[in-house]
Write a protein that binds this DNA or RNA. Sequence first.
DNA 1: CCCGCCCGCATCCGCTCGCGGCAGCCGCCC
DNA 2: GGGCGGCTGCCGCGAGCGGATGCGGGCGGG
Lengths: 222, 222
Amino acid sequence: MTTSPMPATRTKVLLVDDHDLIRKGLRHAFERDRQFEVVGEAATAAEGVRQAGALQPDVVIMDLRLPDGSGLEATRALRKSSASMGIVVLTMYAGDDQLFGALEAGASAFVPKTAPADEVVAAARHAASSPSAFTAADLAEAMKRRLAPSGPQLSPRESQVLRLLADGMSVAGIAKQLFVSESTAKTHISKLYEKLGAANRAQALMTALRLGLLEAPDAPKF
Amino acid sequence: MTTSPMPATRTKVLLVDDHDLIRKGLRHAFERDRQFEVVGEAATAAEGVRQAGALQPDVVIMDLRLPDGSGLEATRALRKSSASMGIVVLTMYAGDDQLFGALEAGASAFVPKTAPADEVVAAARHAASSPSAFTAADLAEAMKRRLAPSGPQLSPRESQVLRLLADGMSVAGIAKQLFVSESTAKTHISKLYEKLGAANRAQALMTALRLGLLEAPDAPKF
DNA sequence: CCCGCCCGCATCCGCTCGCGGCAGCCGCCC
DNA sequence: GGGCGGCTGCCGCGAGCGGATGCGGGCGGG
């Protein structure tokens, strides 16, 4: 435990979040603690990585949802450039399955934005001292979620077929796309049905969507 | 324009947002301005309405996504109890179509959380003086989005058929469910394809999902 | 009043789909 | 080495699907 105060050099913090309000909230929280010094703010992943390179912060507070791409990518980049940097990942949704991704990307801690501001500071404190340490609870939960249910495993071929089915392709079309005979395409489709417990295209697509095996069409809301 | 400063009595502000970080950011922003005084914070819609009744704030900052229901409901309730209260609606997503809903519910302003903190304060200032005034830009955009594209209109029967298709039902099954002949079911399906520009079930389902005509299966994320 | 739309029903036709069965190839594990 | 499971590939069959077209009734707006 680094319980001893650090009078000379304070822990440098970089805030990466596209919401100005959140950044200001974080800054407010950190500035109340004399251990920390907020050395920069960034609203995008790219800007965050750039500033991290320039400012060499001890801890980065990283939002996962950023306008120019995933905060996971940025986290990966940061971890690659520095193994000792503390990276606290913030996420909007508490039950986010991206926890697992954050772990893989090399985050040091994972805090939902619903948590009180103090908790972010506490996580940052912890991350500054032991940057590669998720809490046991975090790990346990992530593992439980990933390993237990793990829907049906699709072969590469089946995944391709699934995506083509989602495009409304016919058997003939799929066969052409994959350079195989129609019979083969049909076999793949049948296997797909079997694994998904579906009896036809419609059920297969809906089930695949439900299991996250297929990218949701995600309307532009108009 | 109430440009004159208010030395005696300051504008009372109530913050309603389930994220502590955001609340702290807002509080920070408002406390820098001597016109305002943050008189309360609430993390839920119910608590927000309760505090609004007790504290009688001049302006309420209201998040739309709250744990115990929509901020829209709370906004409606507040507006019902007081026509003169300023209500600034905050939302996470800039292009949120809930802008329209916020307008209907009686909000005074609409600010995305990506906006700089100052803008929220500015909106609150504006809302305090003219609580029922959306900006022209807000209105124009909401109208444009609502009236212009408005995807294909499905008849009630077609919507039913669409939902049954999503369940993987066959023509015969659909006919039985709807107590009509198979011919009729087929007719509806054909009409559906026509309206959705689809040639088969798969395309119809994906298009319907993309247009928001069909509830996404939305996995429990494990 | 007529026109357009939604609903319901029907027939014909050709094509596609989904199913069952079969088999070669590869990697893994005993 | 031999067995086994998964991926890939192929065939034929019957049922279901999609397209085109026609008919009628009810309801609402120009």
